[in-house]
């Protein structure tokens, strides 16, 4: 395998919900250490694309491969073990557990599996990374919104993923939190992680992404650097045609 072979590639990935084609023949590659933005107006199929990659949904057709191995037919747990880890657009935590136990879930069962003191130490390290170590023993019900997002991020990081899928991780944060959030993802970028970032926050896309894929109504309409795609007339039209953009 060549050194610059993509970590993740999608070829003709398609998902239909009855008559609706939510993801239509999408092709793209993600290289190692790359931060790729997946952007597009509401309902354009970004989350569905992440669901296909993480195994939450099975593609109707097309292939998804991780380092050349097809994974489209695998279950979510097998894909997680092979090193693809995600956050959810609507934060999903384990409500009966402490912050630390939430993060341990990733450390114990993920791509690299740990147990006992090793898992605890690793989970703690991830909490430090996201800046939440002092809340380790708090119950997740007591957290502020950004802190719940931090816990979820720490849980996905704790599995030592090869590819990280972040679905609007910055959405819903106030301006101060947003600055902190962008700084945190920049730190992950500097660590050399491979990330697919679904985002609506333009500042974040400009400052964090190496490359962007733009979707509209399930189809890829542009691909390139953030500056290129954001000045593409078709992209502008897709966003302006949408009230929420």
């Amino acid at each position: 395998m060549r050194a610059d072979a993509p970590v993740l590639s999608l070829r003709g990935a398609t998902k239909r919900f009855g008559g609706l084609v939510a993801v239509n023949e999408i092709d793209f590659d993600v290289a190692e250490h790359e931060v790729m933005g997946l952007i597009g107006p509401n309902g354009s199929g970004k989350s569905t694309t992440l669901n296909l990659i993480s195994g939450a949904l099975k593609p109707t057709s097309g292939t998804i491969s991780l380092r050349g191995t097809p994974i489209g037919h695998l279950s979510a747990q097998e894909i997680a073990r092979r090193g693809i880890s995600r956050t959810f657009q609507l934060v999903r935590l384990l409500p009966s557990m402490t912050v630390l136990d939430n993060v341990r879930a990733g450390a114990v069962f993920g791509h690299r599996r740990r147990w006992g003191a090793e898992a605890d130490a690793h989970a703690m390290k991830m909490l430090e990374l996201v800046g939440l170590a002092r809340r380790a023993h708090a119950h997740v019900g007591q957290l502020t919104y950004i802190d719940t997002k931090r816990v979820e991020l720490a849980r996905t990081l704790a599995s030592d993923p090869k590819v990280l899928l972040l679905d609007e991780w910055l959405a819903g944060l106030n301006p101060t939190e947003l600055t902190e959030g962008i700084a945190l993802i920049r730190r992950l970028r500097e660590e050399g992680r491979t990330i697919i970032l679904v985002e609506h926050v333009m500042d974040a896309i400009r400052s964090l992404c190496d490359r962007c894929v733009v979707m509209s109504s399930g189809t890829k309409i542009a691909e390139g650097t953030p500056t290129e795609v954001l000045s593409d007339p078709e992209v502008i039209r897709a966003y302006l045609g949408d009230d929420d953009a």
Partner: peptide, 20 residues
């Protein structure tokens, strides 16, 4: 531990790599 996670959120359990 896997069962506690499943009880809390099966979707999270699957995405954490648990054979639910």
């Amino acid at each position: 531990f896997a069962l506690r996670i499943i009880g809390d959120d099966e979707e999270v359990a699957r995405h954490s790599g648990i054979n639910t």
